[in-house]
């Protein structure tokens, strides 16, 4: 391993006990059901691939949704599926019924700013870089990624700043995201509907 090698991808793999040396360094990019041409184009660009390679990532899967992108550097592999061999082996495809397995397999996830994707990825404890789509008119989604970035749960980046974000990401410094706590809403509704003597509420610590 070269001196300049940043230990972060390795530390992610070491952190999850199921990873072995052979499947270390997998990146998954997702745009969900949206269209996000700029992000897809960016992650397939040489500067980003260079940074990924330098950080020790070896495979890249891109779920591109309805995005348009320049596929001239890729070879077509069936309907809506493209591939490229190389230092960072790349595979691009449009949709799968569920992305949970893709999240679980990845050591780094780069995603659009959809709140569902963000919650799912963070609850799996995966390092996440969120890239809000700046071309959306109602860009409230950037609010969420900025707020979660300020709390240290993820890294928020512009499309233009993605290489830099990947380079500077320190996965071990990310703050774990809390798991789902159903008791808050349960207590709130029980209280509103008059179940205030409920045993369910006895554990509440307000």
């Amino acid at each position: 391993m070269p001196e300049s090698f940043d230990p972060s991808p390795a530390s992610i793999s070491d952190g999850s006990s199921t990873s072995t040396a052979s499947d270390r360094g997998h990146v998954f990019v997702t745009v969900g059901s949206t269209r996000f041409d700029a992000l897809v184009q960016k992650v397939l660009s040489e500067p980003v691939l260079d940074v990924l390679r330098a950080k020790g990532y070896r495979t890249l899967d891109v779920q591109c949704g309805n995005s348009d992108f320049d596929a001239s550097q890729l070879s077509r592999n069936g309907e809506d599926r493209w591939q490229r061999a190389g230092d960072v082996e790349t595979s691009v495809w449009r949709f799968k019924p569920t992305l949970k397995e893709e999240y679980e397999r990845a050591d780094l996830i780069i995603s659009h700013a959809g709140s569902g994707t963000i919650i799912d990825v963070l609850r799996l404890g995966k390092p996440l870089i969120v890239v809000p789509n700046e071309t959306l008119m109602d860009n409230h989604q950037a609010e969420l990624s900025d707020a979660l970035a300020a709390l240290g749960h993820l890294m928020s980046s512009s499309v233009a700043g993605l290489s830099k974000a990947i380079e500077t990401l320190n996965t071990s410094a990310l703050v774990p995201f809390p798991q789902f706590d159903g008791s808050r809403f349960r207590e709130l509704l029980d209280e509103e509907m008059g179940f205030i003597h409920s045993r369910d509420n006895s554990s509440s610590g307000r």
């Binding site: 709140s115 919650i119 409230h140 989604q141 609010e143 969420l144 900025d146 707020a147 809403f185």
Partner: peptide, 9 residues
């Protein structure tokens, strides 16, 4: 219940 995505607006 306002969406989790709504942080400031």
């Amino acid at each position: 219940v306002e969406s989790f995505a709504r942080v400031r607006h």
